[in-house]
């Protein structure tokens, strides 16, 4: 990862308390993101992608057990800020988020124009009029007709609502936007559209993205970097070109093979079994139980190996 570092996450942990025990949703994550780049975070459902996003933005539910580690933004350790300070200085000022099911994240009793202007009013101390102007600009960026400003969320199609949610994350001009499955409920055409919008915003406004998705194929459009998560940990990172050309971790390989090919006559692969329970993760490599290349060292915790700027957490690559 070249360029100057915008975000650096070190040993981030987020555990939840449940009636069954402690769920280790995010279990020691390290990664970096350079300015004006987009990292795609892929992984199966329940591997802690959304939890990681929430941990970065400190949007914690009530049942947090452990929340530790470091999140540096522009070199500032955000974990040292108090909650109220964090709310005023970080959220939407430096980092914003398009939440999962963004379509449902709009207030049903507020006009979408007002809704988009809200963060600007709250954070940038803008008057309502100025904020509405800003909202209009953002509507143009994401390609929503301006007369939609006066509509309510339920009067908009899913794709439009998604765009509105993205506009809302842009309105205060943050440096980093976390997009949590921004296209999961949309058809392929709309997905492509939205990714084009994101691409253009990235170029025009110079923002960085953390894009959480299942959809490896579509997200490859936007990705500069890729990080693969498995069972609360990041198992592989690297730049997108080289990752898509040849993933290193056995899980990544399997994951890539599960994407159907258009031209090659190849059946999509699948991974036998289920990810391990995060209540009580296995010692050693967490993928070991499902790994085709498993061998003796896999019972031990694998180290993170750096290979020409890429990292992989696997014994196979230990020399």
């Amino acid at each position: 990862m070249a360029g100057d570092t915008l975000l650096r996450v070190k040993d981030l942990q987020l555990f939840f308390r449940t009636t069954k025990g402690v769920v280790r949703a995010v279990d020691g994550i390290d990664f970096e993101l350079a300015r004006n780049r987009a990292v795609v975070i892929v992984g199966e459902s329940g591997c802690g992608k959304t939890s990681m996003a929430k941990a970065i933005l400190r949007l914690l539910p009530k049942n947090v057990d452990t929340y530790s580690g470091k999140v540096f933004l522009n070199g500032l350790d955000t974990m040292t800020l108090k909650d109220e300070e964090y709310r005023l200085k970080m959220r939407w000022v430096k980092m914003s988020m398009v939440p999962q099911a963004a379509m449902n994240s709009l207030n049903p009793v507020m006009k979408v124009g007002d809704q988009v202007a809200e963060p600007a009013i709250i954070h940038n101390d803008m008057s309502k009029e100025v904020a509405m102007e800003q909202a209009k600009t953002m509507f143009q960026h994401v390609g929503v007709p301006l007369d939609f400003l006066e509509r309510y969320a339920f009067e908009l199609s899913g794709g439009m609502r998604q765009r509105v949610a993205i506009a809302m994350s842009l309105v205060s001009l943050p440096e980093l936007i976390v997009l949590d499955e921004p296209t999961s409920a949309l058809d392929v055409l709309t997905q492509a559209n939205i990714f084009n919008v994101l691409k253009r915003i990235k170029e025009d406004l110079g923002m960085s993205f953390i894009l959480i998705t299942h959809d490896i194929a579509t997200s490859s459009e936007l990705a500069d970097d890729v990080a693969v998560m498995y069972a609360g940990q990041i198992v592989e990172t690297g730049d997108a070109h080289r990752f898509f050309a040849g993933p290193l971790h056995p899980y990544s390989i399997k994951l890539m093979n599960s994407v159907p090919r258009l031209r090659a006559r190849q059946e999509p692969d699948f991974i036998v079994g289920q990810p391990p329970s995060l209540l009580n993760p296995p010692t050693g490599c967490r993928f070991a139980a499902r790994c085709p290349s498993r061998y003796e060292p896999c019972d031990e915790e694998p180290p993170t190996v750096n290979i020409e700027g890429r990292t992989v957490k696997c014994w196979l690559h230990v020399k």
Partner: peptide, 16 residues
Amino acid sequence: SAYIEAARSYGAGNWR
């Protein structure tokens, strides 16, 4: 609701 969490995420205060 998702939109309340969204509001919290973009930093709306308690009273707001």
